[in-house]
Amino acid sequence: MTAFMLALLVGVLFACGAYMIMLRGQIKLVLGLGLITHAVNLALFGTGALKRGAPPIVPEAGATAAMASQFADPLPQALILTAIVISFGVTAFIVVLIYRRDALTGSDLAPGELATVINTADPFAGFDPRATLPEAADDYDILQYELDEVYNRPEAEVVYE
């Protein structure tokens, strides 16, 4: 019964997470990712046997192989601990990315939902991308390119010396 409930919970978390990722919205994206990582962690948790009140301690003398089935396997819990730390780091990174996108554009679903200014301690606070690098083409550029291509490709104007 416990195993069935856990399986059901994992499934529900996966479904909710997948649904939330597919919605348009930055906070929903973060929450959806959080739900999916929880689902995976719970699935990992389920791979150790689900037993309560039996610490995995083997007496020094007289340990038998049969004892191993008495308690839950501690290894998956160690794996989950590692996985939680990693997914925490990645989620924090995504939150920072979203915060910055919000501050730079303010043009998602809710403008300025998260941030209105960029911290001055930010190493790239006064960093003008156009001063150092070619702009990356966005969808508008592609459209413009196609229009140029089909209708009036600009003529060459200046020749190198």
């Binding site: 996108r101 730079l104 554009t105 790239f124 960093f127 991308p129 702009e135």
Partner: peptide, 11 residues
């Protein structure tokens, strides 16, 4: 570098 297109692609 944190330019808008980088952040969009990054997410």
């Amino acid at each position: 570098g944190g330019t808008p297109s980088q952040i969009n692609g990054g997410i």
